[in-house]
Write a protein that binds this DNA or RNA. Structure first.
Lengths: 156, 156
DNA sequence: CAAATTTCAGGCCAACTGAAATTT
DNA sequence: CAAATTTCAGTTGGCCTGAAATTT
């Protein structure tokens, strides 16, 4: 019995965006193997954002990370419930909630980021360091073209 | 008033997989602009798959495209309802439903593929043809490492 | 008053699990 | 009978809309 043909449509494989899409599906499998400590990518981006920028209002987190404000509510609920962040009214504008990292949040964020790095390493394992650099640069240039505001000045 | 800082966390931007993820979000916005004629990416992959491989049982579509069999049901319902594909019992194994493209399905698939190509072009517009080739090659090599069965023999 | 911020209710789609129904 | 295939019911997460509540 012949092995069934499992190849993806050639017409789609020719599109870099389609191959990227398939690779994104790989990242889910790899992350599942490595363990995410209960923190999904949105949680991680929030932790990293607060670690790098300091306390922020929800609106600002939302704008930076392109997380919908209404979705942010549940994500911050998760982080508060597990003691990684907390909300407090902004005294100078009581409409705003300032979100801060706890020490635990800082530490767990570091560990979860290390897992994300290991996942990235596993994904691009077949590439040499130089090739990864090349790839990263091409991706950054492409992204910079569509969303320059989200990159630090050096990249634009 | 200073413009608010919208930059993404640097720690994450250093990961190619994270940048890829951001680019995938761009593809949604671009596709929305170009119009998908009611056919999302899974529908398109099915149309391309049938166009290139001929009639297949649902199990085989599922295995090739990594679409969950239970999700495939609704997708094929969509394609049948709009007259792009049809199911018929396999006479030699009545457990199987053979799925075939209609002429309309072939034609609409071609058009929707053209839209996907335009989206891909728009996404990688800042890159030269040579750079796109480079990028595509790096992505394919990476993908081949994780899922070689889904690539034609030449790529593995 | 209008505008900004957070929150809630609910929709859609992608991905998955578990089980029923039919057939081999 | 067990196994394969399709289908259905239900869950979760990411992304979105619309509207309520509070505050400026």
């Amino acid at each position: 019995m012949a092995a069934p043909d499992l190849t993806l449509p050639d017409s789609l494989l020719r599109l870099p965006s389609f191959v990227m899409f398939q690779l994104l599906r790989e990242t889910r499998r790899l992350t599942a193997q490595l363990g995410d400590e209960g923190l999904r990518l949105p949680h991680l981006t929030i932790l990293c954002c607060l670690a790098e920028a300091g306390p922020l209002a929800q609106k600002d987190i939302s704008a930076r990370l392109r997380i919908d404000p209404s979705d942010l509510v549940a994500l911050l609920d998760d982080l508060e419930r597990t003691g990684l962040a907390n909300r407090q009214r902004d005294a100078t504008d009581r409409r705003r909630h300032l979100v801060s990292l706890t020490e635990a949040g800082r530490e767990v964020g570091r560990r979860r980021l290390a897992t994300a790095r290991r996942m990235d390493d596993a994904l691009f394992e077949p590439l040499t360091a130089h090739e990864r650099e090349q790839l990263h640069h091409l991706l950054m240039r492409t992204y910079a073209h569509h969303d320059p505001d989200r990159l630090p000045a050096g990249y634009r």
